[in-house]
């Protein structure tokens, strides 16, 4: 059943305002979208975060922004931690110690926690079939520690560990296809989403928490601080990511790919690059080949996605 905007407007936010995220932060926007969806479904949520921007911004003791039970353990292991809480829940229900209230277990993890240091733990949870939804807040770098590269950082991007210098032009590698990895891992549901396409995102969340077993949604999270754009352009940047096919919106249900929202008109990648300071150096003539390579890869991936989604 589609979720109505009117309904959501009357719901209490499960993440309170007053947290310390930057103005224009995409992460808290996405968290609200996810939590509102599950709340509108009438399901309780238990959430977890690995170390990262969101965790630090929302839990400075003695305050908390979380109106749902929430846990932070460390940077690597939100998945194992929350999955074990789910196992405990299942166990208590089985023993009759707890009523089955169809609680949804949701992790909000940064791309560093997800693509890099926590990858093993997520793959373990997927393999064991522990029933959690993992939402990646993908701002394509380690923002909490000051904009370092991650396995999700796109080719050519400036970060503080892929700086632009006399011999190096930003990141020299493409990002990982983590959805592809999890699909190969046998995950029943995986998707890419974006905060500007809120209805698409919410539908995906609904699907993800309704299936049996683990699910994964990778949400592009344009970060004004790390990507170097004005803080009122977060949503615009999200739209541009999708319109240039830098971030296609699709889902994979039991191995079957489906493109959920297509750009009305596929824009050139250069428009995306021009809009963000982290790609500024790619506009120089000597770096044109990097911008071209990005476009080539985007085209190739888009072709491939369309072929898979046939």
């Amino acid at each position: 059943m589609p979720i109505k905007l009117k309904e959501i407007c009357n719901q209490e936010d499960k993440i309170a305002s007053g947290h310390r995220a930057c103005h224009g932060c995409p992460e808290t926007i996405i968290v609200r979208q996810v939590l509102h969806t599950i709340t509108a479904m009438g399901k309780p949520v238990i959430a977890a975060c690995p170390t990262g921007c969101l965790e630090v911004c929302t839990s400075p003791y003695p305050q908390t922004a979380w109106r749902v039970p929430w846990i932070h353990n460390a940077f690597e292991n939100a998945s194992s931690t929350l999955a074990a809480a789910w196992s405990t829940y299942k166990h208590f229900v089985k023993l009759g110690k707890m009523e089955d209230r169809d609680i949804k277990f949701v992790i909000f993890g940064g791309d560093g926690a997800t693509y890099d240091i926590g990858l093993q733990f997520i793959s373990g949870v997927i393999e064991r079939g522990q029933h959690i939804l993992y939402v990646c807040l993908n701002n394509e770098a380690y923002m909490n520690t000051g904009i370092q590269r991650s396995g999700a950082t796109p080719l050519g991007a400036w970060t503080t560990t892929t700086p632009v210098g006399k011999v190096l032009p930003g990141k020299t590698e493409h990002r990982k296809d983590i959805v592809g990895m999890f699909v190969a891992n046998g995950i029943p549901y995986a998707a890419q989403a974006a905060p500007h396409a809120w209805r698409d995102l919410m539908t995906k969340v609904q699907k993800a928490v309704s299936i049996e077993g683990p699910s994964y949604i990778d949400v592009i999270a344009p970060c004004p601080r790390g990507w170097r754009f004005p803080m009122d352009q977060t949503i615009y940047m999200s739209r541009l990511a999708v319109d240039t096919c830098m971030w296609p919106l699709y889902e994979v249900e039991n191995g079957k790919y489906r493109i959920t929202t297509r750009p009305l008109e596929k824009k050139p990648v250069i428009e995306y690059l021009k809009a963000q300071g982290r790609f500024g150096h790619l506009l120089l003539p000597e770096n044109k080949h990097i911008a071209d390579e990005l476009q080539r890869k985007v085209d190739q991936d888009w072709e491939e996605l369309q072929r898979r989604a046939k």
Partner: peptide
């Protein structure tokens, strides 16, 4: 797991 009395763990 006490969803009626939500607590923050690991602040």
């Amino acid at each position: 797991l006490d969803i009626d009395h939500p607590k923050t763990f690991g602040a």
